[in-house]
Design a protein around this nucleic acid. Structure first.
Length: 440
RNA sequence: CGGAAUGUAGCGCAGCCUGGUAGCGCACUGGUCUGGGGGACCAGGGGUCGUCGGUUCGAAUCCGGCCGUUCCGACCA
């Protein structure tokens, strides 16, 4: 993409509506614009990042689950059956269609997926089954804030598992646990599992995945040693190895303020290992048995020929929130530095002198070569001053900056800079076609 | 929902106290110069001052209602 063609409205100054860093940077880098409180439009740059995050999630979830797509608008009937039509409270947006039929904008999908399951699956032979979708949700928060971190409309990945018995359901829960660890790792985030309350979803087993960040919404107490744990190279069809991993990670003391117990904390964690910080919840696992399958009559016939309600769990990831969380973990005084896995463009070409023939020819040639190799590249081809272009490229956080100016071109080289480290190397113009392979 | 701010050009703000019909910086348009970190100069364009009503000869300014947005708290992916 050429910068001259891209709809990228960047801002030099911090908008007054934004107080935290990720929100400011998303507005300044032209990723989002607010529509109303807690509701945002995603502009091209932000939308590219959002889609990249979705695809990372898909790449892991598809190994253990099948993607489908449920609607944003749901019928109130199934919610009345589960009892949540009233229980969910004012956060749920309800309205009526022209026939006075009661509808709602889905805040989550347990009822709907259970309904689909109950009408189409009858036997244990179809299990285990796990289904997910990535869809917009609406929760009418009391106080939306911090941009996409607590929006009212937000994009969520929600998966739902169906098993014959609790043992299998826990295996699925553990697979999700591993899948989440890998998903967040791929985004260059350190997510730690924390035992959680089940809230309105319900159930008796639940973990949140928390990104440590000063701008987080809740206080987190933990044993520092969990941060040193690596994700072992195990497969999703090794339930024992996965179970060992889950046991190991959940054996560390980690708690959000609502579950924190100071006495246990002091007793079980050495003083030097204690860390109190703030965190952002980016994922949540629930096992809730037959909480929904019972009222919605999602029964299966088991091996003994009996009809029993299916065992369920649900597993969410805040996709749009992750954009903010990643920025929170990847910014400096100049702007964002994206992890390569989610970056909107891998390379940014800064032609420092667009009116110089030699510079333009080299820039054009590198641009065309990268495009031919299907590598995402943003080419700043505008006739602007160097400072403007460099500052903007820093702000929007493209991981690799290719800087082409007369000084270098005259001597047969251009510069390649890593946005995160600032490390810069001079690259011979004859090596221009190989930069994608050996960045350095 | 309790507490507190705020609404003036695309963005950031001043003007309001003490009423006299709107200004600054950035951005934008045309031009000249400049050219490796948001450059300089010249010439321009853009605002029913959130909205409705009241007071007044006259309201961005004073008074009232409504709406929007934000921050702190309780609540949550």
């Amino acid at each position: 993409m050429k910068r001259s063609q891209l709809f990228l409205p960047t801002l030099k100054e911090n908008p007054s509506e934004a107080s935290i860093i990720s929100h400011r940077l998303m507005l300044r880098s032209g990723m989002i614009r607010q529509s109303s409180s807690g509701i945002y439009s995603w502009l091209p740059l932000g939308y590219k990042v959002l889609k990249n995050i979705e695809n990372i999630i898909r790449s892991e979830q598809n190994l253990i689950s099948q993607e489908l797509l449920m609607p944003t608008i749901q019928d109130s009937e199934i919610w009345k059956k589960s009892g949540r039509f009233n229980d969910y409270g004012k956060e749920m947006l309800k309205f009526k269609d022209r026939h006075e039929h009661e509808l709602l904008y889905g805040p989550t999908n347990e009822e709907l997926i259970t309904d689909i399951f109950s009408k189409n699956v009858v036997s244990y032979k179809s299990l285990p089954m796990c289904l997910y979708h990535i869809q917009w949700k609406f929760r009418d928060e009391i106080r939306p804030r911090f941009g996409v971190m607590r929006g009212r409309e937000f994009l969520m990945k929600d998966a739902y598992s169906f098993d014959e018995n609790k043992e299998d359901a826990i295996k699925c829960y553990n697979r999700m646990f591993l899948s989440y660890l890998r998903i967040f790792k791929k985004m260059d985030l350190k997510a730690i599992p924390v035992a959680a309350d089940t809230g309105p979803i319900g159930g008796d087993l639940s973990h949140e995945f928390i990104i440590l960040a000063d701008t987080g919404e809740s206080d987190i107490y933990l044993d520092k040693n969990i941060l040193g744990e690596n994700i072992p190279n195990i497969k999703y069809d090794e339930p024992l190895a996965i179970s060992d991993l889950v046991d190991k990670l959940t054996s560390y003391y980690t708690a959000a303020d609502d579950k924190h117990n100071e006495d246990i904390y002091i007793k079980s964690v050495k003083e030097n290992d204690r860390l109190k910080t703030r965190g952002i919840e980016v994922g949540h696992l629930f096992y809730f048995g037959n909480k929904y399958s019972k009222p919605l009559e999602a029964n299966i016939t088991n091996t003994d020929g009996q009809n029993i309600p299916v065992e369920m769990g649900s597993y969410g990831i805040g996709v749009s929130r992750l954009v903010g969380a990643i920025i929170d973990a990847h910014n400096d005084d100049k702007g964002i530095y994206w992890p390569e896995s989610v970056a909107p463009y891998m390379f940014g070409i800064v032609n420092l002198r667009q009116d110089d023939n030699a510079c333009r020819e080299l820039s054009d040639s590198i641009y065309n070569n990268l495009r031919k190799s299907n590598i995402e590249v943003l080419y700043d081809d505008r006739n602007e001053g160097a400072g403007i272009k460099l500052a903007e490229m820093d702000l929007i956080g493209i991981p690799w900056q290719i800087r082409i100016g007369p000084r270098g071109v005259k001597n047969g080289y251009f510069e390649l800079m890593n946005r995160e480290t600032g490390k810069t190397v001079e690259v011979d113009v004859n090596e221009a076609n190989n930069i994608a392979k050996n960045k350095f």
